[in-house]
Lab assay of single mutants.
Amino acid sequence: TEDEKKIQELLKRANGDVSKAEKLAQSQGNEELARRLREYANK
């Protein structure tokens, strides 16, 4: 999905570090994506 692409892109930029990727999403003002990242990471 589009969200998964965004999540994978963020994870790439954060070198696979979920908490960093989450902070990136939040810094972009994207709380929804940050929440999805957390769920994605907890799979």
Rank of each mutant, 00 (worst) to 15 (best):
residue 11 L to S: 00
residue 3 D to Y: 15
residue 30 N to G: 15
residue 15 N to S: 06
residue 30 N to K: 06
residue 4 E to G: 07
residue 26 Q to V: 12
residue 10 L to P: 00
residue 24 L to H: 05
residue 35 R to E: 11
residue 13 R to H: 10
residue 1 T to D: 14
residue 30 N to H: 08
residue 38 R to C: 08
residue 20 K to E: 10
residue 35 R to H: 09
residue 9 E to F: 04
residue 12 K to D: 11
residue 36 R to K: 15
residue 15 N to I: 01
residue 20 K to T: 08
residue 17 D to N: 09
residue 9 E to R: 04
residue 25 A to D: 01
residue 31 E to P: 11
residue 17 D to I: 04
residue 10 L to I: 10
residue 3 D to C: 13
residue 29 G to K: 03
residue 21 A to V: 02
residue 32 E to Q: 07
residue 11 L to I: 12
residue 29 G to E: 04
residue 6 K to A: 15
residue 12 K to M: 12
residue 25 A to G: 01
residue 14 A to S: 07
residue 1 T to R: 12
residue 19 S to H: 13
residue 11 L to E: 01
residue 1 T to S: 13
residue 14 A to C: 13
residue 19 S to Y: 13
residue 29 G to Y: 09
residue 33 L to K: 00
residue 17 D to Y: 02
residue 12 K to H: 10
residue 18 V to L: 10
residue 23 K to H: 08
residue 37 L to K: 00
residue 27 S to W: 08
residue 13 R to A: 15
residue 8 Q to C: 15
residue 23 K to L: 11
residue 43 K to R: 13
residue 37 L to E: 02
residue 11 L to W: 02
residue 36 R to Q: 14
residue 41 A to D: 04
residue 35 R to G: 07
residue 1 T to F: 13
residue 2 E to I: 13
residue 41 A to R: 08
residue 17 D to E: 03
residue 37 L to V: 09
residue 20 K to W: 10
residue 31 E to W: 15
residue 12 K to Q: 11
residue 2 E to H: 09
residue 21 A to E: 00
residue 16 G to A: 02
residue 42 N to G: 08
residue 4 E to T: 09
residue 16 G to I: 01
residue 27 S to P: 01
residue 22 E to S: 07
residue 15 N to G: 13
residue 5 K to W: 14
residue 7 I to F: 09
residue 26 Q to H: 10
residue 16 G to V: 00
residue 18 V to A: 08
residue 38 R to Q: 06
residue 1 T to A: 13
residue 1 T to I: 13
residue 34 A to W: 04
residue 30 N to R: 05
residue 20 K to Y: 13
residue 21 A to Q: 01
residue 20 K to Q: 10
residue 10 L to F: 12
residue 42 N to S: 12
residue 37 L to C: 03
residue 8 Q to H: 10
residue 5 K to Q: 12
residue 6 K to H: 10
residue 31 E to H: 14
residue 28 Q to Y: 09
residue 31 E to Y: 15
residue 20 K to H: 07
residue 38 R to M: 04
residue 26 Q to C: 10
residue 36 R to V: 08
residue 37 L to R: 00
residue 2 E to C: 12
residue 25 A to I: 03
residue 7 I to Q: 01
residue 31 E to N: 08
residue 14 A to I: 02
residue 29 G to M: 04
residue 21 A to M: 02
residue 10 L to S: 02
residue 22 E to R: 03
residue 10 L to G: 00
residue 19 S to E: 13
residue 32 E to D: 11
residue 29 G to N: 05
residue 3 D to T: 13
residue 5 K to M: 12
residue 15 N to T: 02
residue 4 E to N: 10
residue 6 K to Q: 15
residue 26 Q to N: 07
residue 11 L to Q: 00
residue 15 N to Q: 09
residue 14 A to N: 03
residue 25 A to M: 03
residue 18 V to F: 14
residue 32 E to G: 05
residue 11 L to N: 00
residue 43 K to M: 11
residue 32 E to Y: 07
residue 30 N to A: 07
residue 37 L to F: 04
residue 29 G to W: 04
residue 22 E to P: 00
residue 38 R to A: 06
residue 34 A to R: 04
residue 38 R to V: 07
residue 11 L to R: 00
residue 36 R to Y: 09
residue 1 T to C: 11
residue 24 L to R: 02
residue 12 K to L: 12
residue 18 V to S: 04
residue 13 R to P: 01
residue 39 E to M: 05
residue 33 L to I: 06
residue 24 L to G: 01
residue 4 E to R: 08
residue 43 K to V: 09
residue 39 E to I: 05
residue 23 K to N: 06
residue 37 L to I: 15
residue 35 R to A: 12
residue 31 E to Q: 08
residue 33 L to H: 01
residue 23 K to A: 12
residue 41 A to P: 03
residue 9 E to D: 11
residue 42 N to M: 14
residue 29 G to A: 04
